[in-house]
Design a protein around this nucleic acid. Structure first.
Lengths: 339, 339
DNA sequence: TTGAAAGCGCTAACAC
DNA sequence: GTGTTAGCGCTTTCAA
């Protein structure tokens, strides 16, 4: 496939110019006469030369590689988000290094030294919640980075997230329009920022419509959806609408509903948050507030690359993307009326 | 965090030895006197020195990085498998580069040249089906690699896969023990090797028990599960057991069953193949033939690293892992009898 | 056991 | 415009 290894030196010799000229041509920096360019290009083709990326990296102190760091590779967002990230990165000439870490590791000096010693150009951090300690590290680590999604405090910079508050409001208003009388909220852990945003959106909107809020705290897992719904049903039999702080809990709740022969959406209308693919795979399909996962990835990597390539141009970024109400069977009472 | 950048040169100067000696100590190659070692180590700690990975890479022509290449990053296996791969890789001092490609790109010389120019040490290839053309490329590319899972032809080498045939047999026997009289199989695309293995397992086992086989060809997607089940039900109303060639199709079928008010497992017992997490999240939970996803990843990366570090020791590998029958609601007639 | 020095392959001043 | 040369930071002969 690739014969020997052909270096810039051969190319230079073969085209009768100096390696500097070849390098200049390759990097399109400063002018080279059209004629030499033609000569060089010819030899380049002939040898199907590819510059050695490592040598180039060493000389330029740059690897054209970014890292995606997360403790939580099995998060349902992951596949789709990674896909868009890798795609955009590649299009810009960057490769994607995948790193899964626990919080401990982020505090390890060696961890960061290692990234630096590899000239990793920047990283995306998808870490749920950062302790103050780690935030301190991040400030000092002196690398471009963007935080994604859940790891976002309202006061933070350099992050891409979604409008959790508005999304929650959308969800509640949707349930109200469905004529739900008693709308409960199964929240995420209050320690997590997006969970708080969604909770506040729920509370404020309920208030706006003069409703009495009813909140149970879950932990974003499937199981907690099942269990807490069980408790909710036993303690409040008259609930007829539930807004789950994420899809996974809503899906988990389906087991409980089935067990108690609760009809969805006839008896209770439910809606989740996130818009993971799973919502379309279960029965009934779950209504949700959809996050633009791909877009989150795209924007994050885009911002990161800007920070890398034009450090001065890129100030602190703080993007908040819109979410979208997706109505599916679990809250669709149009069809219901017909039957 | 990290002050200036401290190179091996400072370490050498500071400890009063040559950089060669420091390098030797760092790489634990050839002996160094205990005394110098102590001196060096002291300085090392003091500066919290990390060798520059890129420079080292250039000198050793090695990056300590492996690539995971797939066209299909949203495959449900992905998260868990990647997780185990990254874990083992890291434990062995390797990082994981994620590359998603279409088949076209694999035929592109530049693609491979790029990997080589970065001194990527090897790669895992999770590509469904490789054309002969690509297999030709792989032979010539001269890099260590292992193929994973679906990309496996029976005659291939350097691959890690599972016992598809035996798994299918397990599934069928399970349905027979459940007293199913007419057992159908929704296969995967016949062009895909694992699909063929599962089909053959089904056919042979049916024959073994003197049953008449009934096969419909699906394409492994959720939707094909829904649609083909629809057709199956209309054409063969007496089917009472279905073995789906993968879980996704079995899950898709649930919509059809619901629509036609078919009770699972009372009217029809079903079982899938793969053991993706989704099977536990739907209603009813789906029985399945579980692939040891983590193990597949672990073994693959393990083999790959062996190939990289001991090229002579590692001959051609061809691992076939065992699968496991997991009985869940969709084929559980123990509980059914009680009710 | 240790040091000197020649690479690894490319970039970027600096000079012409 | 183009060539010379000194790095980038580390490894690895080859001598001593």
């Amino acid at each position: 496939m690739t014969r020997k290894k052909v270096t810039i030196r051969e190319i230079a010799k073969e085209s009768g110019v100096s390696i500097a000229t070849v390098s200049r041509y390759l990097n399109k920096v400063s002018y080279t006469s059209p004629e030499t360019e033609r000569k060089i290009q010819k030899v380049l083709d002939q040898f199907s030369y590819t510059p050695n990326a490592v040598a180039r990296g060493l000389a330029k102190q740059k690897s054209n590689t970014i890292a995606f760091i997360t403790p939580d590779i099995t998060n349902p967002f992951f596949p789709e988000m990674i896909k868009s990230i890798e795609y955009i990165a590649k299009r810009n000439g960057y490769s994607l290094l995948l790193i899964s870490t626990n919080e401990e590791e982020l505090k390890n000096k060696d961890f960061w030294n290692n990234l630096k010693s590899r000239y990793i150009d920047g990283f995306l951090l998808a870490q749920s919640d950062l302790s103050e300690e780690i935030k301190g590290y991040l400030d000092k680590v002196q690398m471009p980075f963007i935080r994604i999604d859940r790891g976002v405090q309202s006061d933070s910079n350099n992050s891409v997230s979604v409008k959790n508050y508005e999304g929650a409001s959308l969800a509640v208003r949707h349930l109200i329009e469905l004529n739900c009388k008693k709308i409960a909220h199964i929240s995420g852990p209050k320690s997590v920022f997006p969970a708080r945003g969604r909770l506040k959106g729920y509370l404020d909107t309920m208030k706006l419509y003069d409703r009495t809020p009813l909140v149970y705290e879950g932990d974003f897992t499937l199981k907690s959806g099942t269990d807490i719904t069980e408790r909710l049903l036993s303690e409040h039999k008259d609930v007829d609408g539930i807004f789950y702080a994420n899809d996974l809990m809503a899906i988990g709740a389906l087991k409980t509903f089935k067990k108690h022969h609760v009809q969805i959406p006839e008896n209770i209308a439910i809606i989740g948050f996130d818009g993971i693919q799973l919502t379309e795979m279960v029965n009934p399909e779950i209504s949700t507030i959809k996050q633009p996962v791909k877009k989150i990835g795209e924007i994050a990597v885009d911002q990161l690359i800007t920070k890398i390539e034009q450090p001065d141009l890129a100030g602190h970024v703080n993007v908040e993307l819109d979410v979208e109400l997706i109505v599916r069977e679990s809250s669709d009472r149009q069809n219901q009326r017909d039957s």
